[in-house]
Design a protein around this nucleic acid. Structure first.
Lengths: 206, 206, 206, 206
DNA sequence: AATGAATGAGTGTTCATTCAT
DNA sequence: TATGAATGAACACTCATTCAT
């Protein structure tokens, strides 16, 4: 769904490898300093080139975030769609989505952090319309699963379901702000504990 | 603890009311657009004055966020300290802290949103050292309570406690990103449901 | 018809005098160096200020040419419309239009020179659509008068009328490239001699 | 007289054909967009190569206009010199010069358009000193012929002769701005009509 | 002959800030 | 208290040019 189309006049000859390298660097800086606060000079510095040289590879600073976010969302949805296509039960679906989410955080930590901080702001521009689309699709998948779970008696029915949705959603994604790859726990382990908290609560069962 | 010292040089200080008015406006814009993306002119526009005129009231844009955040943290800690001074049991303490937090979100939504988005970035500057102090104190209070709860058999012991802490912390504060005063639920009701989810889980008990 | 609308967020407080001063300077530099080759820094230099300061008065370099050209065309059409409204004979109309044109060259030399050099290029942008409109109206007035003159037996009928039109038009306006106010001849005297050449030819009558 | 000296350093010079091809393309773009507004990349695009590749053929963008203008002026003067060497009467000389001029416009339309727009600006650089030389020689030829014509009673003596000169000069060359090869009229026919207007006037003789 | 990648100087523009009035 | 005008540093971006391959 989201696809950053590269509309350069000239055939945009950059080698895919160099492009990916530069985008990785850019993503890290964006995640760290914020998109607006990041100067293209800083990105270029870290890449060992001059600011202007970046424009051989990319149209604009904006097109860099664009490609970073679009790439991330493409992969995310590949994972999500696979999960949804499996038609598991509601609880298993939620478990699979959460696990998949932490895996994406593991692989695209910077992109997720950028998404968290900048998506709302960027989505106001037509170019980033796919962010809104993605969010809608996201909500449909999660909220739908929760509703199914309530209907099937798997999840509690005494909670405001939209509140539950936001709770789940934020709980998972905000983790990108502190997550460090190669940290103490694997994404799967973090997912397991998060799921355990979310589904069963942190209080000791009476 | 954190106090933005008003180091104005010559002229008579602004009336406290006008000051508060302007800070409220500034906070809303900062929360909405992000600190960096907010121009001092936009704030002035909304206040019905010219950009330069703001400098009669404040030293700098930075001192505006400073005062916004410091004011918020002062109030937050007044509430937290009262809770902690009551020496309740671990579960009750957590419940009180969460409830107090949602009340603060209700009253200082903009400030909380700013804090969420900008704190990490701002804290690198000496001037905002109190942000780091506050965070440390915050962690001590919450983590300590959780540890006490585990020790007393109130909270589960099979979870990574730091993970649980982050889970709780993020769960609460990230709500500022979607919370709207006068929304469907009161802060207390939101707190009740969040606590219910966090403590007991969203899965139906077998 | 052409009106450069000043769409600034803030009420655009610049005093009309200062504005006019700056536009005069800008027009001279544009006329001299060409629009593209003119840097806003050079304009600012001549105005005794820094480049950025120009942006207090104008939105952009583009809006400067815009205002320069629009102001000129407004005045030009005020003059032309008065001539046309007088419903003179074809020859007298041409004489009046030529005279009026040289007066405009005298008063707006820079603007005319800019128009000559840049109009075609600028007119491709929607913002400068009024240039095309003006040109069309211009052609209608001149060509129409010539045709009327041919019909009434005042002008020769053995010439390609569009060629005659271009001949007249260019002959007059290209003068802006060498005209200097306070030169040897007044605009009216130049007009008189031009008309004499154009209408009666430079060859001595047999 | 004017000759753009090709000071390439190391590699073997481009084949004359390829060179001419590229210069033709460059001239068209320069004429269309203006010299300054033309990027070297646009020229390369139209030539089906990358911007950097042009530098195998030419030293610089400047040397391209240089060669374009010098080539044109060389040809122009070949024609003019032939006319002048024929020692015709003043009227016949003017007729021959005008006709020759329209032929040059027909053959070097782009170069003429570039000359019209950029000569004054370029002539400030030493490298383009030949432009000034050419203009001086040009003025001498035309003005001299006119003066001779006045003295011999062929042209009117009641006109400012310099005004007449400029009138004639501009009248002819400005045609390059609208002239299209393969248009309705041949260069010779356009010359005939222009001469008829200039010499005899557009007014019907009484 | 031409490419891919980079340079470096410059361009228009933005914006927090200053200050005389 | 606030305005009008300006500063100056920084910013994203452009472009002619270079050069190893």
């Amino acid at each position: 769904m989201p696809t950053a189309k590269n509309t350069k006049a000239t055939p945009a000859p950059t080698s895919p490898d160099r492009r990916r390298e530069l985008l990785t660097i850019a993503a890290e800086v964006f995640a760290d300093q914020g998109y607006n606060a990041t100067t293209v000079r800083r990105i270029a510095d870290r890449a060992g080139m001059l600011a202007g040289s970046l424009y051989y590879h990319f149209d604009s600073k904006e097109s860099m975030v664009d490609e970073i976010l679009a790439t991330f969302l493409d992969e995310l949805w590949a994972g999500y769609d696979a999960v949804l296509a499996a038609h598991l039960g509601p609880r298993e679906t939620i478990e699979a989505l959460v696990t998949e989410s932490f895996r994406e955080i593991d692989r695209h930590r910077s992109a997720v952090a950028i998404y968290q901080k900048e998506a709302r702001h960027l989505a106001t521009q037509p170019r980033f319309g796919y962010l809104t689309d993605s969010q809608r699709k996201f909500e449909k998948a999660w909220l739908g699963t929760l509703e199914r779970g309530v209907a099937e008696g798997v999840f509690r029915s005494d909670l405001d379901i939209r509140l539950t949705y936001r709770f789940l959603r934020d709980t998972v994604w905000v983790a990108a702000s502190w997550y460090r790859p190669q940290g103490r726990h694997s994404p799967e382990e973090i997912a397991r504990q998060y799921l355990s908290m979310v589904l069963d609560g942190v209080a000791l069962r009476a």
